[in-house]
Simulated assay, not measured.
Amino acid sequence: MKKTFKNFVLGATVCTMIPLSSFADEITFAHGANKGNPRYEAANLFAALLPKCTNGNLTVNVAPSSTMGDDVEMLTSAISGVINITANSQGAMAQIVPEVGALGLPFLFSDLPSAWKVLDGEIGNIIDKKAQEKGLKVLTFWDNGIRNVTSSKKAILKPGDLKGMKIRTPPDAVSIAIFKALGANPSALAWSELPTALRSGAFDGQENPLTNIYSAKLHEITPYISMTAHQYQSTPVVASLMWWSSLDKKTQECVQQSAKRAGWYERGLSLMENKDLRAKMEAEGAKFFDIKDKKPFIEATKSVYKDFDKKLGNGFVAKLQAAAK
């Protein structure tokens, strides 16, 4: 299924063949995902699409699995022009463009397509303008799924079950605020360090979409998986503005369209895997718990909206809520 879908996307690509107008024939596309993750597959697809679009004048060196540093380091490298493109994280990006963090406000999106529609519209354009002020160009938003809590000890069925729980979050102010509001003891940690930290007992649990949990085998360490669906997170795909500005318009179009086409492949994989992974993980010993009543969780996290509306102070949260509806 994956190969068929990927071949279709690759075969359907139609780009104008153009001469290169940049300072490097080979560009670096860096990300933190491991093999088997939709982002890993999409980055490889981007690397196949771009040379076709540019008549071979631009080739892509994909640097996966945080080989170019963690998400914050990759963004810093992109701003300075050391790397050209990174498929990054919402939390790290929010440290540069705070509005990105608001995409993860609690229980904002009910499903993945709803989130994609918002990201591909006015909200995405606003974020892109903010990013360019900081030296980054948003090419598109790939998917990082709707997040659920995993624990080494117990199921999470009500907010009280999180009281005092040591839980890892990404370096994302909204994620930390959500779990503080729910009574947990959250702490940020880089993705690459998470499996070791869980095994050591430094954390009681963590939260991630099923695709990330499965690809990193976190369900083997924290087998209690509670379907909280508390937060959506995107994967902003951003280019160095320094490099982007050196390209002519046709080359820019090639880069952006290749990123978007690879993104639809990545989103499709994410959507399909979310339907299949539960059964796979259950077969491998994970225990899933559905939450019948999410109202207590929603009520407990309302303060997060007020706090971030005040923090951003530009009406962005209201625009985002309106778009999500």
Score class of each variant (00 low, 15 high):
69 G>V: 00
74 M>N: 13
297 F>L: 12
240 S>K: 03
65 S>N: 13
33 A>V: 00
95 Q>Y: 10
86 T>L: 05
176 I>E: 14
59 T>Q: 03
182 L>S: 04
65 S>L: 02
56 G>V: 05
123 I>W: 01
119 L>N: 06
241 L>K: 14
29 F>T: 01
92 A>Q: 04
106 P>S: 07
169 T>S: 14
301 T>G: 08
42 A>Y: 02
85 I>M: 07
228 T>K: 06
300 A>C: 07
325 K>S: 13
138 V>D: 08
314 N>W: 00
241 L>W: 12
285 G>P: 06
313 G>E: 04
55 N>F: 09
85 I>F: 07
217 K>C: 05
289 F>L: 11
104 G>A: 13
9 V>A: 08
138 V>A: 13
279 A>W: 00
267 R>C: 11
66 S>V: 02
8 F>G: 03
325 K>E: 12
122 E>F: 05
254 C>Q: 00
37 N>G: 07
179 F>N: 03
135 G>P: 13
260 K>V: 14
217 K>E: 12
318 A>E: 14
276 D>I: 11
191 W>H: 12
44 N>M: 14
308 F>G: 05
295 K>F: 05
274 N>S: 11
2 K>I: 15
184 A>Y: 00
25 D>T: 13
83 I>W: 01
27 I>V: 07
310 K>H: 08
283 A>H: 06
70 D>F: 02
6 K>P: 10
114 S>N: 14
137 K>G: 11
55 N>W: 01
272 M>Q: 14
272 M>K: 12
75 L>I: 15
132 Q>M: 15
304 V>W: 00
38 P>F: 09
68 M>Y: 07
140 T>I: 08
199 R>Q: 15
202 A>P: 04
239 A>P: 07
288 F>D: 02
281 M>C: 08
178 I>Y: 01
254 C>D: 02
305 Y>H: 03
24 A>L: 04
115 A>S: 10
144 N>A: 15
253 E>L: 10
17 M>G: 13
248 D>V: 07
160 G>R: 02
121 G>L: 01
62 V>W: 01
16 T>F: 06
44 N>C: 12
51 P>L: 05
279 A>S: 14
313 G>I: 06
271 L>S: 11
294 K>D: 05
104 G>N: 09
